[in-house]
Design a protein around this nucleic acid. Structure first.
Lengths: 340, 340
DNA sequence: ATGAAAGCGCTAACAG
DNA sequence: CTGTTAGCGCTTTCAT
């Protein structure tokens, strides 16, 4: 079946395409009778506007591009769900591209979104992105960009929304200290990544504030897979069996730590206490349930959309003065469970 | 910054737009020197093709629309990840819309994708979708449609990819019987939904094949939230404390069952054995770890893309003879863990 | 309140 | 191998 166009509607109804377009877009300057005639005809014939043509002509679209490492990551999938549902309220849709934490794919995603002429971009960079200049293309075109979670750690355009990673790291470590730990192992991700950098800074600050000297043998940095964490644990406990607390910068590693302790008959929380990061769904299921740091993904999502719509509406009203640059921090909260 | 167009490139380089277009699209009939000149210029000036214009003119796009209940559902997020990564190999991108299991939103998603003129559609319907006629619009326009997981339970166009829900239900129940259960409770989702209908059929068939009469008091159907499952468990165990096996049609309910048993000091697996469905990440973390049915989401994703590309390439070569209709079934596999 | 006409940026005959 | 030309379907002045 061929797609019906407004030209055909216009011909059938003996009006001009301009009128059809107006009626369909709810312009106030169409006679009620004419409007009804057009709307009814469109409905009955199953007319569906060609957004591609519309977007080309008007040079705007209602599509927001998302770049995320992997949508199957619990935190991101929750953020995205919220983003989409919030954006829906404003008639926007999202197109999602995954970088799989590969710089090359991220670059490609940027190119794709740029070609697609999306209205705005929301991105969580790869673990290894330290240079964000490939995002410049959006800023140059005055396309709003919002980075969340994996944000640039240096002055860069766009809006940055991060969790309070320093406070998260500080709070998690302080919690372990408060419940009696003296020798805390920290398993961190790569320090180039904003998240891990500040979580570990929080870890160090908490130690210092409690009169404990940071020892670099107690901190390991690598991609936070289950396997990596396990290997680190083997090494760390071999070197120093007196470790009595573990703070991991994600929950997968905390789960690995829990399983490691079980396998070595180390009692959790008696001998070793564990706290993770992100409040992954699995942490509350584990036994003992794992303490962790709640990041409030819904807040991230809402904040992203709120700030985006702010910019987009400014733009529409011509009030735009280039792309806004700003930083927002979402508070975190330590969740105490049975592992501490 | 204004977007550079091929018209401007053509003018600067003193060639025609056609030549620019050809060079940029890798046409073989452009002199090497000309091509290089154009490609270089485009790269240096940061030209980015306007896909919107290109799509409009050529009446095709490299975007596949996805409609899913919720991307934060473990199974779906895994399927989507695979779909996107597979599609990437063919230069396609995806635009994702969530129905939140609402019929109204699903309808809206269909409208949106239709307007966007996507190349194809991949959909997992809402829990309550029994009438799929709103998807007709794609079939009429000869846009390939692939339903997965939540597929129509009656002859309907497009390709249907489902897990082997009957065998899954059968296998799970048989497994409980094999390990000694005599009185098995089945917590199912709404039977209008393909998935649950066939899982429960499998449950019944397994009972019968083992000489056990199905009793309708042992089967409850409702949306499978943690809370609903909990309420059902309270009711069921009040009525019949001799239940010694529980087969839930999703993992959230299995987790609820496990927690329920713990709260009532019912030993799992000694007094009651539990098996869920989907191999959610949480099931292997639970303690005792939960048996479940693996659905191989990666297979779903790969199959979707494989079949899609088949159709899309047919279409391209003009071999299309309407939209293909077919059914594919992905095998499942019972995973035995400590809960049984 | 409506119509005529121009054109968004690109592709694809067709011609040379 | 390259250029000319005609739109894709829609929105948007500018008239009337």
């Amino acid at each position: 079946m061929q797609n019906l166009t407004i030209v055909e509607i216009a011909r059938k109804l003996k009006v001009s395409t301009a009128t059809v377009s107006r009626a369909l877009n709810g312009s106030s300057q169409v006679k009620e009778a004419t409007r009804k005639k057009i709307i009814d005809f469109a409905r009955d014939t199953g007319y569906s506007i060609n957004s591609v043509a519309s977007n080309l002509r008007s040079n705007k679209s209602k599509i927001v591009g998302l770049i995320v490492p992997k949508i199957s990551m619990n935190f991101h999938s929750e953020v995205i769900t919220i983003i989409q549902n919030e954006l829906y309220k404003f008639g926007y849709n999202i197109i999602i591209l995954q970088s799989n934490d590969s710089h090359e794919l991220e670059q490609h995603a940027v190119d794709t979104l740029s070609s697609l002429r999306v209205a705005a971009v929301i991105a969580a960079a790869t673990l290894h992105t330290t240079d964000f200049s490939h995002f410049d293309i959006f800023l140059k075109k005055e396309i709003p960009v919002i980075f969340y979670d994996r944000i640039p750690d240096y002055p860069f355009g766009g809006i940055h929304i991060s969790g309070d990673d320093f406070q998260g790291g500080y709070g998690a470590t302080k919690h372990l200290l408060d419940v009696g730990c003296k020798n805390i192992l920290h398993i961190s991700g790569p320090l180039e990544c904003y998240l891990y950098k500040y979580r570990s800074k929080g870890y160090k600050a908490a130690l210092e504030n409690h009169g404990i000297t940071f020892r670099k043998e107690n901190m390991y940095c690598h991609e936070l897979t289950h396997e990596n964490a396990w290997n680190t644990l083997v090494k760390a406990f071999n070197q120093d069996p007196t470790i009595d607390g573990i703070f991991t910068a994600n929950d997968t590693s905390a789960i690995a730590a829990l399983e490691f302790c079980k396998s070595k008959n180390i009692d959790v929380p008696k001998q070793v206490k564990i706290i993770g990061y992100s409040n992954d769904k699995r942490t509350s299921i584990a036994s003992p349930s794992l303490s962790t740091v709640e990041q409030f993904p819904a807040e991230f999502g809402k904040r992203c959309v709120e700030l985006l719509m702010q910019q987009l509406s400014h733009e529409e009203s011509g009030t735009a003065v280039g792309v806004k640059t700003d930083n927002y921090v979402i508070p975190v909260s330590v969740i105490r469970r049975m592992s501490t």
